[in-house]
Simulated scan of single mutants.
Amino acid sequence: MSENLEPAAVSVELLSVLAELVSTATDDELTGSELLAAAGTPFVVLGVGSLAQLRLLDAVEERFGVFLDLDGPAEFLNSLDGLAEHLVTEHGVTP
């Protein structure tokens, strides 16, 4: 039986930091503002490719001192919102 959990309290500041990391990972093909406006949109729809996602993983791990395990389900890497919520709920990250 699954519990009904409230959505994680993700701050605008965390989303902004992540948006800049994604922007850098895509070689600035997407701006932080564009990413924030499309925070729930899947990265693949935004044109964020697999290489950029690997760069993003490295940047997030370095910035927040966490390990993002890709051996299991990696839905957290689908969107900016998903990544932020994962960092808050699974790793206790705050900006």
Results as ranks from 00 to 15, higher is better:
M1E: 09
M1Q: 12
S2M: 03
E3W: 10
E3F: 13
L5K: 07
L5S: 08
L5Y: 03
E6S: 12
P7F: 09
P7R: 13
A8M: 12
V10W: 11
V12P: 09
V12A: 15
L15E: 14
L15W: 10
V17N: 10
L18A: 14
L18C: 12
L18D: 05
A19G: 11
A19D: 05
A19M: 13
A19T: 15
A19P: 13
E20F: 11
V22R: 08
S23D: 11
T24D: 13
T24I: 12
A25S: 15
A25P: 05
D28R: 13
D28C: 06
E29M: 09
L30E: 10
T31V: 12
S33D: 15
E34D: 14
L35C: 05
L36T: 01
A37W: 04
A37D: 11
A38R: 11
A39C: 09
A39P: 07
T41M: 03
P42T: 06
V44G: 00
V44E: 11
V45G: 02
V45Q: 00
L46W: 05
L46T: 00
L46I: 02
G47M: 03
G49R: 08
S50P: 05
L54F: 08
L56M: 02
L57C: 01
D58K: 09
D58C: 00
A59N: 07
A59S: 14
A59T: 01
V60S: 10
R63G: 08
R63C: 08
F64M: 04
F64Q: 02
F64H: 14
G65E: 02
G65A: 10
V66Q: 06
L68K: 00
L70I: 15
L70F: 15
D71K: 09
G72D: 14
G72H: 13
E75R: 14
E75T: 15
F76A: 11
L77M: 04
L77K: 00
N78S: 12
N78F: 04
S79M: 01
L80H: 07
G82F: 02
L83R: 02
L83T: 06
A84E: 04
A84N: 01
A84G: 05
E85V: 08
H86R: 09
H86G: 02
L87E: 06
L87T: 00
V88M: 05
V88C: 01
V88F: 08
H91V: 02
V93R: 03
V93Q: 01
T94P: 01
P95T: 01
